[in-house]
Design a protein around this nucleic acid. Structure first.
Lengths: 195, 195
DNA sequence: TAAAATAAAACGAGCGTTCATTTTAAAAAA
DNA sequence: TTTTTTAAAATGAACGCTCGTTTTATTTTA
């Protein structure tokens, strides 16, 4: 239903806001900043969005959808459990390298600031999807029998940590190179030990 | 050198700001909010602090110092390596339960917002201290030979993840109860395997 | 020509900070 | 002891500015 112009305008706003919200925080990016940075007039912004909050909502919906799709596809294609785990790690690292603003937006921005009723990010669709994957692996005996929250923390904790270190410029290498060794550590911590 | 009154005022401001900065974010807490919430007049606030930023600096210094001291003491007292690791986990969980605002302030608040030159939180004193502990354990052969960043992520990632899940009210139990099972998982991922 | 899109100006509220002033409490002078 | 003086502490109205949003007017598009 959206016109071409509308899509272009929204895309410009998306790209600018993802970057700036991640960098400076939602509260420190004004409508005037957005107007200037995205090259869309204030009037046009309010023509497409009813409020600043709604821009945040729009960004949140788009980013979680993009991430969910990538994770889902990776797991679906994986030939076995270890490869599924590898695909989760690799895809998250890959997105962090290719679209760092997007990952930063998801992991760093306080969504509660503009989405009072949004679930915490760890309960957003992509993270819930991964949680279900983990739950299934525990129930089917692939992972050791443990509290699902513990398993989830042992798997997602290190992945997110690496991404954050990368975003804080503590790590200067391409983190996709760490996939294998991180996978090794995680496998040891959650997979059933070999007989 | 500080007078008693000054210490009382600063303590009130500390307690209110830790809570509110963690809850609403630095930018969304105004000096008027602080004045009202802490029961200190605007003038008095500026009598003790030269700017709002300086309040942030004050909170940052205090909180990192408190955490560092607790972590350092825990490791010092531990009789062996596994117990040292347990003390790190337990102390962080313990602080999360006893002083959640403090942990939330350290883990959630975007310090760059008011401390443009502060290192990212993972490079703050307490985290650097833990990193050195890990480095030493790799060099002395207690942990498997691996990149220190990977080891650090495998250890701190799950701990921080659990704390965040607790703060987001995903976990309703006292997370100190998870110390043992999380320690088990982490030990498997970083300690040298038994011969 | 009607509808969609843009631009700029205007609005009131709230921001961080300043400052002239008052209150408080202790030291000095009587 | 009582009075005067002094400096620290505390006050809140006011300043200049930016905020999110609305209104108004004009241009572009279909």
């Amino acid at each position: 239903m959206n016109s071409i112009k509308e899509n272009i305008a929204k895309k410009k706003i998306f790209e600018f806001c993802i970057r700036e919200f991640a960098r400076a925080g939602y509260a420190n990016v004004s409508i005037r900043n957005i107007s200037k940075g995205a090259g869309i007039s204030i009037g046009a912004i309010y023509y497409y969005f009813s409020s600043k909050e709604q821009i945040g909502q729009f960004l949140y919906d788009k980013t979680t959808e993009i991430i969910l799709n990538k994770i889902r596809l990776g797991i679906k294609k994986a030939p076995n459990d270890k490869e599924a785990l590898r695909s989760i790690i690799y895809n998250l690292f890959d997105m962090s390298e290719k679209e760092p603003e997007l990952m930063e937006f998801i992991l760093y921005v306080k969504h509660k600031e503009f989405l009072p009723d949004a679930p915490p990010i760890c309960s957003s669709k992509p993270f819930e999807f991964i949680k279900n994957f983990i739950k299934e692996k525990i129930e089917s005996g692939v992972f050791r029998d443990m509290n699902i929250v513990i398993a989830s923390a042992l798997i997602m904790g290190p992945i997110i940590r690496i991404i954050q270190l990368r975003m804080d410029n503590i790590l200067n290498d391409d983190i996709r190179l760490y996939t294998e060794s991180l996978l090794n550590g995680i496998v040891k911590s959650v997979f059933k030990e070999r007989a």
